[in-house]
Simulated scan of single mutants.
Amino acid sequence: MREIPIRGEMIRLGQLLKLADLVEVGADAKLLLEDGLVTVNGELEQRRGRQLHRGDVVTVEDESVRVA
């Protein structure tokens, strides 16, 4: 599992997906979310604006990253 460092206290899910190179553009993130391919801490997530904090784990299909 890769750790993705953030600067502030939180990051939005769509921003993290781009930062972690899991998507190229926001439109790709929207499609992944609509298709039910993204989980946060093991729960299905469909909100691109979901706030993530250090320790949260985001999984897209078979790749997971942790907010650090």
Rank of each mutant, 00 (worst) to 15 (best):
L31A: 15
S64W: 00
V67C: 00
E63L: 13
K18Q: 13
V38L: 10
R48E: 08
L33V: 02
R66A: 03
L17M: 15
V38N: 08
V57F: 00
E45T: 09
V40C: 02
E34I: 07
G26T: 04
I11E: 06
K18T: 11
L44K: 14
L37M: 14
D56E: 02
V38A: 08
R47G: 06
E43R: 13
L19I: 12
K30T: 12
E45I: 08
R7A: 10
V65A: 08
Q46S: 12
D35F: 14
L33K: 02
R50Q: 14
A20N: 05
V57Q: 08
E61A: 09
V57N: 00
E3V: 08
L33M: 02
R47P: 03
G14Q: 12
D28G: 00
L19T: 12
R54C: 00
K18P: 03
N41E: 04
V25D: 08
D35N: 15
I4L: 08
Q46H: 12
G55A: 09
V57I: 11
L22E: 07
L13D: 02
R54W: 00
V58H: 03
E43V: 12
R47E: 13
L52K: 06
V65L: 10
G36F: 10
N41H: 05
I11D: 03
E45D: 06
Q51F: 10
R12T: 12
K18M: 14
V38Q: 05
L33W: 04
D62M: 11
V25T: 15
M10G: 01
R54K: 15
L37S: 09
A27G: 15
H53V: 15
L13P: 03
V40H: 05
